[in-house]
Design a binder for these strands. Structure first.
Length: 422
RNA sequence: GGAGAGAUGGCUGAGCGGUCGAAAGCACAUCCUUGCUAAGGAUGCGUACCUUCGGGUACCUAGGGUUCGAAUCCCUAUCUCUCCGCCA
């Protein structure tokens, strides 16, 4: 959520920056609503003030002579007036809140201007995509023929976009999770194991609601399955004043649930785009002065996993048109997938500045002022896609998979995945 | 699931229809006294919004209601605790 006070004082600048997202933005109408609203607040409050004063008079009059009918009728007149003012006020406040809750974050000045992913800018690459002497296979062909991935049976019991992992596949998934968490812990992140179901207000706090409800799974009791651990981790300090002298660094492994509304036909094969997937998430909560430095180091924390796994990747900075709702600046990390012969997103690291903190009401005190913290989040990494990358990049000519060195200890010493019987 | 009890400021805890944004204690901040590692005293100490910068308004879990007036009475929800049952 943007700061209405900032919008008042810098309408033109903010409007210009928001337009870079290629969305229709009209802040002037918001400003007008805000002005009307404040007038009504003043009016309502002064009426209320009168009511209170008169009510006190009634108390005194009753004590003295037991009769206060004259003042009582004055009060009821005031209350009728106030009621009609309040009705208008409520309507206006609703409208303003709606606009604010559905307006995206302001892109940072350094974010390249563009309309879609073609305008993203590569900032670095690492590793060299393998030149295979044989034709590289897709992870799904590899996984199915090795007997470690089963899409058909998953579809039978859960529908499209689910996968059964088994044997060495399931073990590899778990190995990746543990490896990632251990790496992040060594870099100062505290490990969490958060709830997977959250209340609607939590989704509002991190920006999934009210705008993106169709992407979420809702339960029969009104709570939602998390689409990412960013949701519970960022909201950990909801409605609190916290100390940000040192940045809070949190990490968590969780399953993530996404309805994938609107992505019909995209990545239908394999486990690239699933309704349920595992992810290790990184979240930072910090002082506003540090958030852009923290974004750089968080992105490096995510890239570190790929370097240790020896998986080639590139990092791009998203252009204004491709950035998510919450973000002021985002780096995507894309891993090389030889089976698809291209780079695919495996992590997205964003600085959300005070956008989520304002919604979640997370503040800190400085010089007697109450200020909002900055929040950042990034995948560190999407585990399913990492498994895909391992399968495709470590495939051998005979269809077996070599286990990356750093994962061998997490695989109980196993160094290669061969075809499994079932 | 059944039966009770409760939810007040950073914490503990009073208040049970007007003088309550809320006693008291603890914690915290500044200052004073003293002198020595502790004590005494003074003052201050919530959040948010509006403002003609004097002030004003809202908030005692949340949402409704009663009343001229609600932290205080009534209803509903949520959460916490205790006992019983069940359960991974």
């Amino acid at each position: 959520m943007l700061d209405i006070k900032q919008i008042r004082s810098e309408v033109l600048k903010i409007e210009e920056l928001l337009k870079r997202r290629n969305k229709e933005i009209n802040l002037q109408s918001l400003i007008n609503l805000d002005q009307d609203c404040r007038k009504l607040i003043t009016e309502s409050e002064s009426l209320q003030s009168e009511v209170k004063a008169k009510s006190k008079e009634i108390g005194l009059a009753m004590k003295e002579n037991g009769n206060a009918d004259a003042i009582k009728s004055q009060v009821s007149d005031l209350k009728i007036k106030k009621e009609s003012v309040d009705l208008k006020l409520k309507d206006l406040e609703e409208k303003i809140k709606n606009i604010l809750l559905t307006t995206p974050n302001i892109p940072h000045e350094s974010v390249p201007i563009g309309t879609n992913e073609d305008d993203n800018i590569e900032v670095r690459t690492w590793g060299k995509p393998n030149d295979y002497e044989f034709e590289a296979l897709n992870h799904d062909d590899l996984g199915v023929s090795l007997g470690i991935l089963d899409f058909e049976r998953a579809a039978k019991i859960s529908g499209a976009r689910f996968t059964f992992l088994s044997g060495a596949g399931a073990q590899l998934e778990r190995a990746l999770i543990n490896f990632m968490l251990d790496e992040h812990r060594e870099r100062g992140y505290i490990e969490y194991c958060p709830p997977l179901l959250v209340l609607p207000e939590t989704m509002l706090a991190t920006g999934q609601l009210p705008k993106f409800e169709e992407d979420l799974y809702k339960t029969n009791v009104g709570s939602y399955l998390i689409p990412t651990a960013e949701v519970p981790l960022t909201s950990l300090y909801k409605d609190e004043f916290i100390n940000v002298n040192s940045t809070k660094k949190l990490t968590a492994y969780t399953p993530c649930f996404r309805s994938e509304a609107g992505s019909a036909g995209k990545d239908v094969k394999g486990m690239i785009r699933q309704h349920q997937f595992d992810k290790v998430e990184l979240v930072k909560i910090c002082h506003p002065d540090n958030s852009y430095d923290e974004l750089e180091s968080m992105t490096d924390d995510a890239e570190n996993i790929l370097r240790k796994l020896n998986l080639p990747y590139r990092t791009v900075v998203l252009c204004t048109g491709d950035m998510g709702f919450n973000a002021a600046k985002t780096y995507d990390i894309e891993v090389w997938l030889p089976g698809q012969n291209k780079y695919r997103e495996i992590s997205s690291c964003s600085n959300c500045t005070d956008f989520q903190a304002r919604r979640a009401n997370i503040k800190f005190k400085e010089d007697k002022k109450n200020l909002h913290v900055h929040t950042l989040n990034g995948s560190g990494l999407a585990v399913g896609r990492t498994l895909v990358a391992v399968l495709e990049n470590y495939q051998q000519k005979d269809g077996s998979i070599q286990i990356p060195d750093v994962l061998v200890p997490y695989m109980n010493g196993k160094k290669i995945i061969n075809k499994e019987g079932k």
